[in-house]
C-alpha cells in the first residue's frame, strides 16, 4: 500500500464530506489511506501544498490559483481539482438590529449600511479569512453594492475563520465574511447579523474544491479516480436530509475524536437541505447553478492579481474552462 494521502482542511462545516469520508470508512472502501490535517490557517494549507507538507487540500479557487502561480515561493501544477461545495459564505456585521439587507433595494441598503457605520466609533474593521479568498471577493462586491469605498471607508484584516467569533466578541473587528458555520454562529450568539453572502452576491458559486498536487498524482495515478469516487459518495451522503443529524454529530465532535469541534446548533442550520439561503451545498448535478469560476477570475484581474502571462498559465492548468461536473 502506498503512503497516506495527506489532505489539508480547516475547521469549517463545508469540510463535511472529508470528515464523513474518513469517519464512515468511505475512503477506506475506495482503497484510500487518507490523513486529514486540520490546519490553523489558510497560509499553512497553501504552504503545505507547495513545500511538500500536503498532497491535497480542500481550498477555495482564488488561493489555489495564486498558489499555483507561485505566490508561496515556487510555482506548482495545481488544476481545478474535484469540486466539493457551493456557496455558504456570509457577511456579518456587528449588532443585532440591522434591518435586513437581503430583500431591500439599493438605496435602503446603502442607508442601512450608513447608519450602521455611524453607530461605530471608528472606521469599520472587517475581517476575511485570506486575501486570496472567495470571501474577500464577495465582501468587496457587497461593499461596492452599498457604495462603500473599499480602500478608504473600511479597514480589511485577515484572520482564520474560527477566530472570527472571538474577534467580534472582543471588539477587535466589526464584521467579517467567512465560511459556514461561523456567520450563523455569530448570529445565534447575538454578536452580529448576516447581511449578505454567497446567496445574494454569487448564488451557487463554487466554494471549495479538492486540489491534488502533481507530485501525488504522479506517484499514485490509480488513486485519483478512487479519490473522485470517494468524494462523490461522501458529498451524496452529506446532501441526503436523512443523514443531516449524523453529519452534524461528526462535525461537532472534538478534534481529538475525529471531528472539527464545530458548534452543533449553527451547523445544523446551514446543512444543505435546510430552507436557508445561507445553507451550504454539495450538489453538482443541479442545473442552473453557475459553477464557472469566471467571476472570480475577473474579480482577481480587477484586483490586479493576475497578469496576462498568468492567464495563459491558468488556461494550461485547466482553470479557465468550467469545472467538470461529477
Amino acid at each position: 500500500m502506498s503512503s497516506a494521502i495527506r489532505i489539508g482542511l480547516l475547521r469549517l462545516a463545508d469540510s463535511a464530506p472529508l470528515i464523513i469520508a474518513r469517519n464512515l470508512g468511505i475512503f477506506e472502501r475506495h482503497g484510500l489511506d487518507a490523513e486529514l490535517i486540520v490546519s490553523p490557517s489558510w497560509a499553512n494549507v497553501a504552504d503545505g501544498l507547495v513545500w511538500n507538507g500536503l498532497d491535497a487540500a480542500l481550498i477555495f479557487p482564488p488561493l489555489a490559483i495564486m498558489t499555483a502561480l507561485g505566490h508561496r515561493g515556487r510555482e506548482i501544477n495545481l488544476g481545478p481539482g474535484i469540486p466539493v461545495s457551493r456557496g455558504g459564505n456570509t457577511v456579518v456585521l456587528r449588532g443585532q438590529l440591522i434591518p435586513s439587507f437581503l430583500d431591500t433595494d439599493d438605496i435602503t441598503r446603502r442607508r442601512s449600511f450608513g447608519s450602521w457605520r455611524n453607530g461605530l466609533s471608528r472606521r469599520p474593521k472587517l475581517a476575511v479569512v485570506h486575501l486570496y479568498s472567495t470571501h474577500f471577493l464577495i465582501l468587496m462586491d457587497f461593499l461596492r453594492s452599498v457604495k462603500v469605498d473599499t480602500e478608504q471607508d473600511v479597514e480589511i484584516v485577515i484572520m482564520p475563520p474560527d477566530r472570527m467569533i472571538d474577534a467580534l466578541a472582543d471588539g477587535e473587528i466589526d464584521g467579517f465574511c467567512a465560511g459556514p458555520p461561523w456567520g450563523t454562529e455569530a448570529d445565534l450568539r447575538g454578536l452580529g447579523s448576516i447581511v449578505a453572502g454567497s446567496a445574494n452576491i454569487h448564488p451557487g458559486h463554487l466554494e471549495k474544491t479538492l486540489v491534488t498536487t502533481q507530485r501525488w498524482e504522479q506517484s499514485s495515478p490509480a488513486l485519483l479516480q478512487a479519490l473522485q469516487a470517494a468524494i462523490g459518495e461522501a458529498t451524496r451522503f452529506c446532501m441526503n436530509p436523512g443523514n443531516s443529524a449524523e453529519v452534524v454529530r461528526q462535525l461537532s465532535r472534538s478534534l481529538s475524536n475525529g471531528g472539527l469541534s464545530l458548534p452543533s446548533k449553527a451547523t445544523e442550520q446551514i446543512m444543505p437541505y435546510q430552507n436557508n439561503p445561507n445553507a451550504m451545498q454539495f450538489d453538482f448535478s443541479t442545473t442552473g447553478a453557475d459553477l464557472s469560476i469566471n467571476w472570480m477570475v475577473q474579480a482577481m484581474q480587477a484586483q490586479s492579481w493576475l497578469t496576462p502571462a498568468n492567464m495563459k498559465r491558468l488556461y494550461e492548468l485547466g482553470w479557465l474552462t468550467p469545472a467538470p461536473i461529477s
Binding site: P40, A43, N44, V157, I158, M159, P160, R163
Partner: peptide, 10 residues
C-alpha cells in the same frame, strides 16, 4: 508556522 495571524503577514 502554526501561528494563526501569519495569514495577515502574508
Amino acid at each position: 508556522i502554526c501561528r494563526a495571524d501569519r495569514d495577515g503577514l502574508d
